[in-house]
Nucleic acid binder design. Structure first.
Lengths: 348, 348
DNA sequence: CGACCATGGGAGAGCGCTCACCGAAAAGAC
DNA sequence: GTCTTTTCGGTGAGCGCTCTCCCATGGTCG
């Protein structure tokens, strides 16, 4: 080896201690805010810390504390779709993720916990799981919506603290939050009936997602209660383009539809597009109700009447549940269910 | 303390070694793929690893190697805008991020390097910087576009390996990639002239971003060359809504505009919206050219003619530059500039 | 047949931190 | 004034890994 490697290593606890003329422990105490340190000494140590620009070495610390003070937001999704709208585009384009992140940060940041976001298309799950197992993070907020997603169970088996963003496909001893999907769909149904629409249809999400299932069933059940046994429907995949296609399909088969419940705002935006192309006026000819109350709802013309779900609050609750789980690994899994509400705008 | 804390700690190297009947070192060699291990022994060790479900402890390893095998994608943005479209919504809704992530993962995953995404609105920069300094990651891919963003310089001072997604506002000894923004704008200008438009206007991005500046200047310069000394313009902030407003504003002041260059696709989508509301047909009355060639370009009606920038490749190159920087911290900063090209679709 | 060199495996010293424990000094009780 | 209690700082043993030595073994060559 030619050179001894300059290696301007960042200062260590030891060096700060030496400079301040105290022991490692005292510096450690100051850094970790232990109260039993003489104010004067604490002052001196603080100065030494600032002078050296000391930052605790995470690896050394977490080797003993077994904590990293960071959690991952893992977005798990199937990636076997058409390549036209690749996985990463889909998740990063959906307003969903931003709201979840915002809500989670709201509770994590004040606790000094860092949040890192990791996309986890199914083909890359092993990679992500390795990351999680290595102990980079203390726990995970898991966005996973497909029944067949193996990740929730996997994390459970691995005993990695995790909280789900929705009821899991199969029962699992894992905390989750959710919104009353069926109630939301019922709100939409009754609103459409309430404004005098009687030939209703719906565009649902992928039927391998519990949330999509619930919204579809909720809509159907509500209508059944009001005497409408049959509800035409088409299936999308929660993307804008799929909403457009599904709407076209639905109106081709049922041209007389005058009210449409679309299972999320992104698809509803596509639906509006399709209806415009077909020459139908919204809401005059066809009233449209979306789901989510995302920013997309405001960007449409007309703006979307939609079912609001409090995603930020839900994410904040996820974060709280996760922190609880991390500090008490043996505590029971819990679920917290939120209430949707209808937001009236121009489209219905 | 009531219980002794069950603590089902994950197995350690030591335990695997014991089970395999070898020493720590040998197991370590197997795990790190050192060649000088007897195939038979290696086999035995592998089995022990699988049997115990052993996963190396990151903290312990990186304490000695000073590597974490993960890098951060930090998205730095001003957060002092209108709260109507909050920071996190903005970045996660822009198709930009998904493409960057995809491109970066393309080169990082094969290297076994993990990518974590961190939003860093300016008010939370200290928090993110702490994360980076603690050594959670080996380096950072930094998305930062405002001149006034202090983060690039900060990381530079801190000696944290980083690569920028665009030319920095002030010169900095830091690698970056970029696209020839001016050339892209020129492509747009010449295309509009080429299809017979002569009363051109432009909607620019925020003028405190080099990229927005470059696109505006590139457009103006190109037109100047062709004898058009004055180009009306309005300023947006790269969001869809701002594009809509800016377009309205621009057309109010210059109702005779027949060709429009909008500095990104998202704003162009808003422009289309505005033009539709104003009763102008696209492209008959007003031709519109965007910039980016994002998925948004395909979702518009008509689909957008736009300037393509190879974001995926650019991100991949960023990742390569970063890896180079990490393995050779003393190497010189480099810049790699990509070429834009025009993609013709329906809008112009 | 002894000296030599590969080759493969083990021992041991840390990496930088925390935390339980200990000891010295200051404060209070009698 | 002595003895106990309290307060507060220091000591040292690891956390689980990697990596540099160094030693044992066996093959090769003079």
């Amino acid at each position: 080896m030619t050179s001894k490697r300059a290696d301007p290593r960042s200062p260590t606890l030891e060096q700060v201690a030496e400079r301040a003329g105290v022991s490692r422990s005292t510096v450690s105490r100051v850094i970790n805010g232990v109260a039993t340190v003489d104010p004067e000494l604490r002052q001196i140590v603080q100065q030494a810390i600032e002078a050296t620009g000391y930052v605790p070495n995470l690896a050394a610390r977490s080797l003993v504390t077994r904590r990293t003070d960071s959690v991952a937001l893992v977005v798990s999704e199937a990636d076997d779709r058409n390549t036209a709208d690749p996985f990463l585009n889909r998740i990063f384009t959906d307003p969903f993720l931003g709201r979840i992140t915002a809500g989670a940060l709201e509770v994590l940041r004040p606790e000094g916990i860092h949040l890192v976001i990791m996309p986890a298309e199914w083909t890359a799950q092993a990679h992500v799981v390795r990351y999680l197992r290595q102990g980079h993070v203390d726990g995970v907020l898991l966005i996973s919506s497909h029944n067949a997603d193996p990740l929730p169970r996997h994390l459970c088996d691995l005993n990695i603290p995790a909280v789900l963003s929705a009821r899991p496909g199969q029962p699992l001893p894992m905390s989750y939050v959710d919104v009353e999907q069926q109630v939301g769909a019922k709100l939409a149904a009754e609103h459409l009936l309430g404004i005098g629409r009687h030939r209703l249809g719906t565009v649902s999400g992928p039927l391998d997602m519990p949330s999509a299932q619930d919204r579809l069933n909720g809509f159907r059940n509500a209508l059944a209660v009001h005497g409408y046994p049959y509800v035409p429907s088409a299936v999308g995949d929660f993307t804008r383009g799929s909403g457009e296609n599904a709407t076209r399909e639905l109106l081709a088969a049922h041209p007389d539809i005058d009210g449409l419940f679309v299972a999320n705002d992104l698809m509803a935006e596509g639906a509006l597009q399709a209806l415009r192309d077909l020459g139908r006026r919204v809401p005059e000819d066809v009233a449209v109700v979306g789901f989510d109350d995302s920013v997309a709802a405001l960007q449409c013309r007309p703006q979307l009447t939609t079912v609001h779900q409090p995603l930020e609050e839900m994410a904040a609750e996820m974060a709280r549940l996760l922190l609880a789980r991390i500090s008490q690994p043996e505590s029971r899994a819990r679920s917290v269910i939120f209430h949707p509400r209808l937001v009236r705008r121009g489209s219905a």
